[in-house]
Design a binder for these strands. Structure first.
Length: 258
DNA sequence: ATGGTCGAGTATCGA
């Protein structure tokens, strides 16, 4: 099973690139973030014609998350698990696809360490930790995929000194990721490539992509039973090139059938 | 580090 995640930065603009990518990468499950669409505008039919069922949680203009699957989509839940405080944004959706419980997440950016948006980010991550409790068990098949807006370690940014005092690298944000790992989720891509400097996001400005000034903030977190069956993982940098790319590249992890 | 770029929407703001 190929499980992928991609922050598309407006699905309206990105649809041709997304359709192209689906056609050659053929993910079984694809988590999308920043669709920037209302639910009414989401192109379910176009994805259906490619063989995918889809669920979407969006309010238009900002945020918006989706899951596409060609191995079934059961029990969709928009937002956090129902016993948790509701989120005013549309940043998380969950469904069961081919026996795997999958959440597509768009973690708040945080803007700056002294911002209310940073406090909101940390609170959101605490709720994500509680949400994971409701998803299943560490010995089950759970994957949380998306744009975490956190670089797990200094190896995940092009120049750690350039990010000193910024969001994405702060200790509280990284601790929130560690809390998810302590629950039983594994950063699958890092497991596969322990020492490589590979990024998933590059700012549009200043030629950052071509200068390799990137960050690895798009993650596939999965439980040990899944990561034990991982056979391949990739950041598709080709999808960051060419005409009207997203500023994020898609990431996928291949897991052998149980 | 800032912002040289995008995408929202149509003046700026957010990332």
């Amino acid at each position: 099973m190929r499980i992928a995640t991609w922050n598309v930065n407006s699905l309206k603009v990105r649809m041709p690139r997304v359709e192209e990518w689906i056609s050659y990468a053929r993910p079984d499950v694809l988590c999308l973030q920043e669709t920037k669409l209302s639910d009414a505008a989401f192109p379910h039919m176009a994805f259906s014609s490619l063989g995918y069922e889809s669920v979407h949680h969006g309010s238009g203009q900002w945020n918006g998350v989706a899951i596409l699957s060609r191995v079934g989509i059961d029990d969709p839940v928009a937002g956090f698990a129902s016993h948790l405080e509701a989120d005013p944004d549309t940043r998380i959706i969950t469904a069961t696809c081919g026996g795997v419980t999958v959440s597509s997440v768009y973690v708040p950016n945080g803007r700056s360490l002294d911002s209310d948006h940073y406090a909101y980010k940390l609170a959101w991550l605490e709720r994500l930790r509680d949400h994971v409790d409701a998803l299943g068990r560490p010995d089950g098949e759970v994957a949380v995929c998306g744009d975490f807006n956190i670089a797990p370690t200094d190896a995940d940014v092009w120049d750690p000194a350039a990010f000193s005092g910024s969001t994405h690298v702060s200790q509280p944000e990284r601790q929130a990721l560690i809390s998810l790992e302590e629950w039983g989720l594994v950063d699958a891509f890092r497991r596969r490539y322990p020492d490589d400097r590979l990024y998933t996001y590059w700012d549009y400005r200043a030629g950052d992509f071509h200068e390799h000034r990137g960050m690895r903030i798009d993650l596939v977190l999965m439980t040990e039973p899944l990561v034990a069956r991982m056979r391949w993982a990739l950041v598709d940098r080709n999808a960051r090139k060419g005409k009207q790319p997203s500023d994020h590249a898609p990431v996928f992890v291949d897991v052998e059938a149980a």
